[in-house]
């Protein structure tokens, strides 16, 4: 629209809002410090909340002055990302959901709007309307930037935890001289089963293990893909000269395997880890017997 030119205002609403924000940043910061978002994060010192609010207002003013109200990539929002995203992230850690935080960011709008309307009341109604619209758009973009930052932080966390899981979840345990075991816990995907295979084969070399036990007690479901991974691992271990035993197949999983028509015929299986260990020991010529004290055994 070009009404503002028709009315003789040379300043665009975005510029107007930018000027207003810069002029009133102290008042706005003071009001924001009482808003839920800042109050709950900066519990110790109100000055800090005011400081944070002032930084955000200044950033918004810069964005408005550059007339990039709807552009979340605007330079000014980098400050917002640093400042407001950190507060939002700490709200998120405290257990707030994304929509709660979004509502809290939205709650920053009314106090600014009040001030703006009060400031511009002397001007034409049309002008006030345009400026409030510009401010609303700006605050909407702010809300989007905050949410986007939150989501990115969430994704980073997930990625980090995925890597940690990969490292942590595949310990190879030496059960006996020449016998190693891998207790598998959780769902097996390609990446994990690759890690499992590599660590198991390495430990076979390292421990000089003739027997390797894959315990799948902690694997919730077995589908054809998981079965394939297991068979690959077993085949690789066999090529290296170790015998691989799969243990911990629960009745439900046994049923699933049969229903899917997967042939585990080439794989040695045992019901429990104990059975597998007993088998491996017997194959090595060792046997477990009860200790009989001094020949006076109980009859």
């Amino acid at each position: 629209m070009s009404e503002q030119e028709a009315e003789g205002h040379q300043v665009a609403p975005a510029q107007e809002v930018g000027d207003f924000l810069r002029l009133r940043r102290e008042q706005i910061a003071q009001r924001w410090a009482d808003a839920a978002l800042f109050r709950t994060v900066f519990t110790v010192s109100r000055d800090e909340a005011v400081e944070a609010g002032r930084a955000v207002v200044e950033a918004l003013a810069a964005v408005a002055a550059a007339e990039r109200l709807e552009d979340p990539e605007a330079d000014g929002f980098n400050v917002v990302r640093d400042q407001l995203a950190r507060t939002a992230a700490s709200r998120s850690r405290a257990g707030s959901t994304n929509s709660q935080i979004s509502t809290e960011v939205d709650a920053l709008r009314p106090p600014v709007l009040e001030l703006l309307v009060a400031d511009l009341s002397a001007r034409g109604e049309e002008h006030v309307r345009e400026c409030t619209t510009a401010l609303t758009v700006l605050m909407g973009t702010l809300r989007m930037v905050v949410l986007e930052t939150l989501l990115t932080a969430g994704q980073e966390l997930i990625e980090r935890q995925r890597l940690q899981l990969l490292e942590v979840a595949t310990p190879v345990i030496k059960l006996w001289e020449g016998i190693v075991a891998v207790p598998l816990i959780g769902t097996l995907d390609s990446a994990r089963s690759q890690v499992v295979m590599e660590t198991l084969l390495d430990s076979i070399v390292e421990q000089h293990a003739r027997f390797a036990i894959l315990d799948i007690t902690g694997v919730p479901t077995v589908d054809s893909l998981v079965a394939q991974h297991l068979m690959k691992t077993v085949a690789a271990a066999r090529l290296m000269g170790a015998e691989c035993i799969v243990s911990g197949i629960r009745p439900a999983i046994a049923q699933t395997i049969v229903h899917l028509g997967i042939d585990l015929g080439t794989v040695m299986t045992r019901a429990s880890l104990a059975d597998a260990l007993a088998y491996a020991l017997r194959q090595q010529g060792a046997d477990i017997v009860a200790h009989v004290p001094d020949g006076a055994g109980p009859r």
Binding site: M197, L201, I204, V205, K232, A235, A236, L239, M240, G241
Partner: peptide, 14 residues
């Protein structure tokens, strides 16, 4: 066949 390395075993299986 004796002393096959892990990497070789994995490759053959793949």
């Amino acid at each position: 066949v004796a002393g096959m390395r892990p990497a070789v075993a994995i490759t053959l299986v793949e």
